[in-house]
Each structure stands twice: as C-alpha cells, then as structure tokens.
Design a protein around this nucleic acid. Structure first.
Lengths: 194, 194
DNA sequence: GAGAATGTTGACCGTGCGGTCAAGTCCGGC
DNA sequence: GCCGGACTTGACCGCACGGTCAACATTCTC
C-alpha cells in the first residue's frame, strides 16, 4: 500500500475492490485467496500488495465503502421529511433498495459479522444506523405516534425485519421489491394486527 | 468415522462435538483447526477422524443436532395450545430462551449461513421453522386475528425480529431475557403502533 | 532525456492446515 | 488367555495460502 495514487492507480484500486467484493460474495472470504483476486484481474500478485497491506485490509475497506454508500442513499431518501414515522419508512425502503442493487455486499457483511477481526467495524456501522433509528423513534414517541417502549430494542427489531426480508428477497425471492418493502413497512408499523 | 460405537465411543463423540462447538463459536470455523479441537481434549488427531469423516462433517452434525434440540424445545413449549397467536408467542419465547442457554450456537449458525457448504443444511432448517410459523399465521388469518398479508413474508419478518433481538441480547445486552422477549412479542403483534 | 516516483511482475518462502496411516493399546466375549 | 474389533497415537504428506522482494516497466517532472 502506498500513499500517492495517480488516476491510473485509483482505477486499479477500484478494480481490486470490485473484484474482491464479487469473489468474497460468491465463494466467501476465507475460501477466496489473494491469488484468486489477482488472477481474475489478470495481474501479478504484487499489484494487490501495492494497493492493500493485506487481504484483511481489503475486506475492511469494502465494509467501510459500502456502509458509506448505503448511508448516503438513506440520507438522500429521507431528505427534509419531517414526520418521524415517515422518516423510518423512507429509511427502510432506501435500505432494501440499496441492497437490491448491491447484492454482493449482503453476503460479505453477513460473513464479517461472524469474524472477530471484522465484527468491530460492523458493530460501529450498526451502532450508527441504530442511533439514527432511535432518534426517529423517540420523536415518534413524543408525538404519541409510536408506542412508548424501549427505543433501542424497537430499533433492533426494525433492523432485524429489514435484514431478514432483505436476505429472503435476495436469496430466495423472486418477489417484486416494492411488495417486500410494503410488507416490511406495514409489519414494522402495525405488526401482525389484523 | 466408523459404524459401531460403544458407550465409550459415544462419549468421545459427544466430547468432540462439545469441544468443537465451543471453539468454533469462540474463534470461528476456519480459524479453528482440527489440531486445536483434539488438543483441547488432549487426544491425538486420529481420534477426530475416527468419529468424523472431516472437519466439515463435524459442523454439519452440530447444525443438525442443535436444530433438533431447538425444535424439541419449541414443540414442548407450544404443547396443546389452540390459539394460533399464542402459539406464535410461545414459539418466539422458546426460541429466545433456547439461545440464551446455548449461546455458542448463535455464532456457529450465523457463520454457517455465510458458507455455501453449510448454507443448504441451514436453509432446510429455516424452511421447516418458517413452514411452522406460516401454519400458525394462516390459522390466525382465518380467525381474523392476523392481517391478511403474505404469510411467508410475515413469517420471515418475525424470524428476523427474533434473530436480531437474540443477537442483540446475547452479544450486547445485559437486559433481562423476559424484557427482550416481551418487547419481541409486542412488536410482532402490534408493530410500532402507539 | 535523466532521474524519481509510481506501478508491475512472478518466482519464491515459511507456515500451518486437512487428512492419512502403520503401528499399537484397550477390552468384551468366548 | 487369546482373538478381534473398537479405539488411539503422532509422525508424516502434500499442498495451498498469505506475504515478500529484487528486478523491471511506465509515467511524471524538470
């Protein structure tokens, strides 16, 4: 890994990250070797270690970059919306939409959660997302729009629904995204209540 | 791996599984070597391959055994309860309770979900659990107690809440189990509705 | 166009892993 | 008391992996 990157260098780095993301998603992190990554790009092994200090660093960078991108999308989606309940809904929809367009990352993030080397990065990402949700929930509780229950647990519950429905629709589903998103929002807002 | 196991043999097998479960949970599957497992037990490497055809098989057996145990507990908890909504509630509470008592398995299952070798076993386990939930949901929908929405998606939503709150309460939480279970049930039944 | 900085190569190294096996020990049944 | 099958040992094998590096190529800078 070196400091100064020319445009050419930045492109190579992006190629390596894209390639790594794809392979990690397809075969998993441990089963994918650095040799696989560089072979897929048709370059020598040294190239990898010019841009990354280690295989570990590549995954860490992928996690950071993807989280940054997802958050950007959520913030754009929520925009200036004032209604806290609607803010939660827009956040949920943005999340489902982003993963639908970046399927590779779901598997990568799920693996990273199980490895103590990467769990900290992920835990931090999640903490931030949960904190956002908690803020909206508290606003909604003050407004009397949301039941007065532990906002932290509610936030985790919402994230759990989103995570599992994301997984289901990516891995097993052939359902239209909107349908899943609608149910996801309806379930979070109303539960099973008929 | 051999056919006939004497009582002594069965005990060794159980020791290996217990030991493997602990180490896989603590350090992860790939980073834990067969040498680590047998060393923790103070026996030679050959012992492992007498009882298991491969490291892979050990994990597979762990997944099967744990799922069997969890399901048994759920069935006992639900018993003869007739009310479908209450059946769902009892199932949720049984699940949270089981994981609280078998923390090791949460990490193991989460990893297995990310590895294409083990994903099929897990997918099958999940399918069965989801099918159970769907049955209760359909009963509830007929009764008019549950909203008439896609039962499959609802089932996944419930499982998502349970999974994430389980994770939260095991990994981050110092909250009493009952409190988490209460909120989990309340959220699933009523959503965020205030 | 010299020289520095950036980028690239691929053979090579050490290590640790999953798995094997020939040899031996333990123990129940006869 | 010995036979055979259940069980154990640990040195060993082959290999693939993460990472290094000296040499070379390209591109920037003045």
């Amino acid at each position: 890994m070196r400091r100064k990157l020319t445009p050419r260098g930045r492109e190579r780095r992006d190629q390596l990250m894209e390639c790594g993301a794809r392979l990690f998603a397809e075969r998993g992190y441990h089963p994918t070797s650095v040799a696989d990554v560089v072979a897929a790009l048709g370059v020598g092994k040294g190239v990898f270690y010019w841009y990354f200090a280690s295989k570990e660093e590549l995954l860490t960078e992928l996690l950071k970059a993807s989280n940054h991108d997802l958050r950007k999308r959520q913030q754009q989606a929520i925009g200036e919306e004032a209604d806290p309940v609607r803010r939660i809904e827009l956040g949920i929809r943005a999340s489902l939409g982003w993963f639908a367009e970046h399927r590779e990352y779901f598997a990568i993030i799920q693996f990273a959660a199980t490895d103590e080397t990467f769990a900290p990065v992920l835990a931090r990402n999640r903490e931030i997302a949960i904190a956002d949700t908690i803020r909206h929930l508290k606003d909604g509780i003050v407004d009397g729009r949301i039941a007065d229950r532990d906002p932290a647990l509610l936030a985790h519950a919402i994230h759990g629904v989103v995570a599992e429905l994301t997984r289901h629709s990516l891995v097993e589903g052939n359902l239209p995204l909107d349908e899943v998103a609608d149910l996801c929002v309806a379930f979070c807002l109303e539960g099973l209540a008929g």
